[in-house]
Design a protein around this nucleic acid. Structure first.
Lengths: 400, 400
DNA sequence: CATCTTTCTAAGGAGCCCGAAATAACCAAG
DNA sequence: CTTGGTTATTTCGGGCTCCTTAGAAAGATG
């Protein structure tokens, strides 16, 4: 057990300072002191050390608060150049890679349109290695400038040990993927469920910046869930995070990849939509090429009734799952995101209706449901963020 | 924001010491020092203060650890007499009251067999007042010896502000019940969802003593859920805890008290069982007197097929909900408890089958499902515990 | 140049932790 | 009964960080 010694005290105050700078952008020392209740003297000492380490830097000098007189405030901000990290996102169809700075800004990016799911984890690790080396070179950097790699992928992922227990991308056998990639690249690698990754990114850079607890639902090839509780990523047993896609929605319903029946995934994920479309004769049997789901979306948006019904059903299913989530856990905010929202209002409206219909009336006032559409850069931030978390991690986690 | 100063440091270490004493029973100072990594000097100082405050006391003197030589260890334990609190449990049929000491030991108890649900919150507060005064007198104490009252009841309860937003006991209009009782008795009153209360009690005194995260499912007049995450009670928005009873199990299924359809409560709570029994012609229409559900249990245990089917169905429904909970949140341990388990194996077996059938195979190894049957004294401990939590609360919650 | 605000530096004081030494309590052998 | 060995607990001094206060330096305005 970590005891509380002066070192921890320093670490806590240091964390408060960094966190304030992160949250409230470029900010003057006096202002930090006011918000953290630390004395200006302490803030000065801490920021001096942070600057020496390169974690923060001087953004610019601005005239004082209300009055324009007096010595101008020196605004401090996170130093983008403090760390360079690589974000990797694995989906069934592609490997996305981006090199980002410490603020989540993208230095270079790369997409490998590869059907990852048919390859063994060792092969995937090889592909990731090649892609990362390429992308780092594109950014004009050497590998030794990279502080770490964050890999996000759907499935049951042990983010602490870096093991994929079950994933549509890496298969059903436990794969120590983080170690595999780390061995190849010679830098630390963190593996994380993609929804967790998004949750952390939302917490640092997105709609969760000012929140201490919220839920993120990702709608993609699978339906994922990330939870921030008490400002920290929620993990269940053994480092495995939460999952929404395999809640039983319809007992004895459609079969799902996981071997169970009636999962949300079978009704609302890309995978499930394709299965249902095949079943309904809308699509021929086939593999899961990315253009198939795109085609289905286009047909639905163009007004094809049967296709539209699928997306409406998916929206409703997600809506029920979200309302269950709200009834169960009552998070103050739920952020919906992911490529699966591409069907737009077609999916969104039945989703919101189902939420309204199934949420306990008592909870309606206290819960926000938000949509957040991301560009490609945002998941890279997410992957980058899980590296940053290592650096900035709140110290009192360590006390138990 | 609370800054980290020496005071916080002390508070953290003090908490670690108390927590170690709580967990590992009567324990010597050297042993505390070993487990907390604090120096013997610090442990000595902290325990001296705790003894002065009366929170802990000397249990007895035992010969040293392995060898019998040397100065004997002085074993320290929580002092039962440190605080006296009253636990109150409200259900639809009765008010249970117990006076307990700081270790959860019962000094006196009382059950008022009153159908609480038909009375207004103000009347219920009057009844609680009378019962508490009686029970405290029975214990041979004066009211000014009581440090506080903890009230547990089912429903959507804001445990921070002490407001019942929706409850089968206090109705659907927000009722500031904690304030109402506190005004009458002149002592602090905490209101809490009964499942939260049980979760905290399990954490302090029961099957969650050694755990830092687990879930408690209570099966009674309603199905409740309490979550301990990171050693703390999980609360959603606005102090309202989680709830399992109103997850949608069967879309468009049986109507539930909450106004929705297909809730778990409609299938597995006492309330739902009675409704289904009436529907099936097993029972005449009637109110919810406690003997009705008891009668139904007896008939089922005696072999009446239709009645038994109801309980099997309830077990299955709970099993699905629990597996959803596990698939969703993956808590390392789930503790099932409550009077609703009175049907025994009749309910338990289909429940465990449904869990086995619906849980993601990957999670099976990491999740324990336990049953914990309580006597009446245990909920009183629960109610008492929420007072204790005030006293012992982990200090680093305060830093954000 | 006077004024004003921010930032830095320095000194004094308080609380905590830790290590070392002292003390306490008991056992066991002589 | 005494004395030495052994382990637990307490006491004490040094060192760390924090806070406050005060003052000086920096940088801008008027």
């Amino acid at each position: 057990m970590k005891t509380a010694d002066p070192e921890l005290m320093r670490a806590i105050n240091r964390y408060h300072v960094i966190d304030t700078i992160r949250r409230d952008g470029p900010i003057a020392r006096v202002e930090i002191a006011a918000r953290t209740d630390l004395s200006p003297a302490s803030v000065s000492a801490i920021t001096a050390q942070l600057m020496e380490e390169g974690l923060i830097d001087i953004h610019h000098v601005a005239p004082g608060g209300d009055a324009v007189r007096g010595r101008p405030r020196v605004l401090l901000g996170l130093n983008p150049a403090a760390y360079t990290v690589v974000g990797v996102k694995l989906t069934a169809f592609r490997i996305g890679i981006a090199v980002t700075d410490a603020r989540g800004g993208s230095l270079s990016s790369l997409v490998l349109p590869i059907r990852v799911a048919r390859q063994s984890p060792e092969v995937v690790a090889d592909l990731v290695e090649d892609g990362v080396r390429r992308c780092v070179a594109d950014a004009g950097l050497a590998m030794d400038r990279i502080s770490g790699v964050g890999v996000g992928l759907p499935g049951v992922i042990d983010g602490i040990d870096g093991v994929s227990h079950w994933s549509p991308v890496l298969g059903g056998t436990p794969a120590p993927f983080a170690a595999a990639v780390s061995r190849r690249l010679g830098v630390p690698v963190l593996l994380e469920n993609d929804a967790n990754l998004v949750a952390v990114a939302e917490h640092w850079f997105g709609l969760g910046r000012d929140q201490t607890a919220f839920a993120v639902v990702t709608v993609e090839n699978t339906i994922g869930l990330g939870l921030i509780v008490d400002g920290k990523l929620y993990r269940g047993a053994h480092g495995i995070g939460p999952a929404l896609g395999h809640t039983r929605l319809v007992p004895g319903g459609l079969p799902c990849r996981c071997g169970l029946r009636g999962c949300l995934d079978a009704y609302a994920s890309d995978w499930g939509l394709l299965r249902m479309a095949e079943e309904a004769g809308l699509l021929p049997q086939g593999d899961d090429a990315p253009d198939r789901i795109e085609g289905l979306v286009q047909r639905a948006l163009a007004g094809e009734v049967a296709a539209a019904a699928l997306f409406r059903g998916a929206g409703q299913a997600i809506g029920i799952a979200v309302s269950n989530l709200v009834n169960l856990l009552n998070p103050p905010r739920v952020i919906l995101t992911g490529e699966g929202l591409r069907a737009g209002p077609l999916l969104r409206e039945p989703l919101l209706e189902a939420v309204a219909e199934n949420m306990l009336p008592t909870l309606k006032d206290g819960t926000e449901i938000l949509f957040h559409s991301w560009g490609d850069e945002m998941w890279a931030r997410g992957a980058a963020t899980i590296m940053l978390r290592r650096i900035y991690e709140a110290p009192w986690n360590a006390t138990t």
